[in-house]
Design a protein around this nucleic acid. Structure first.
Length: 197
DNA sequence: GTTAAGATTCCG
DNA sequence: GGAATCTTAACG
């Protein structure tokens, strides 16, 4: 986990550095999420996903890869099929969690972005140690019970700003070839540059 | 009620 | 390249 790696970098005593961690990390507020998903998704890279495990311990993982799904007109966005029971939370204000099940075995974790009634979400595709949207949800036990959870107020999942400086690269989104030329070619996948200066 | 397809991953 | 595996949404 992040703290362990940071702690091993120099010889300061653990108590003092633990205090530094506590003051630097700050939960992201509603304001971060209610912006356009094309701002939110890339800025999530380098932020810290915090989750309380079933044993009640807090775990932190840096977010390394995201994708933006933007509005009803985006043919790759589930909301392009309309407002349904599944997509309902995407129409809520930013900061909520959208979780859905695919391929008979994987839960996908998304953070809702944008203003109320504008369906946008950022798919979390990778976190430190777990590359792949299906793998990470399995690793941190994300399931349907997280649907609609609020990252701003929840006591079991939220996002913190570590104020890390990272370089973000882009590419086209994965697994949406059905969406047509206009939408499948949007450079809306964001990932951390492996050799950030 | 039935059915087709999917914001994936693993194996060959 | 193909299977695993099941919810969602569209259709009858």
């Amino acid at each position: 986990m992040l703290e362990e790696r940071k702690f091993s970098k120099n010889g300061m005593n653990l108590k003092a550095r633990s205090h530094i961690e506590m003051t630097v990390h700050c939960r992201l507020s509603r304001d971060f999420f209610i912006r356009d998903v094309l701002q939110v998704a890339p800025e999530l890279i380098g932020k810290i996903l915090v989750i309380r495990s079933k044993g009640n311990s807090i775990q932190r993982y840096m977010i390394t890869e995201t994708e933006a799904y933007r509005g009803a007109e985006d043919k790759a966005c589930h909301a392009s099929k309309g407002r349904t029971e599944r997509t309902e939370v995407m129409y809520h204000e930013g900061g909520k969690i959208y979780v859905y099940f695919v391929y008979g075995m994987y839960w996908m974790l998304n953070f809702v972005a944008g203003e109320k009634n504008i369906p946008q979400a950022a798919l979390i595709r990778g976190i430190e140690g777990f590359h792949g949207p299906g793998k990470l949800t399995k690793a941190i036990c994300i399931d349907k019970s997280f649907y609609g959870e609020d990252l701003v107020t929840s006591n079991r999942i939220w996002v913190e700003d570590a104020e890390l400086k990272v370089t973000v690269k882009t590419s086209t989104r994965i697994g949406i070839n059905y969406a047509g030329e206009t939408w499948k070619n949007k450079p809306w996948r964001f990932f951390i540059c492996p050799q950030t200066p």
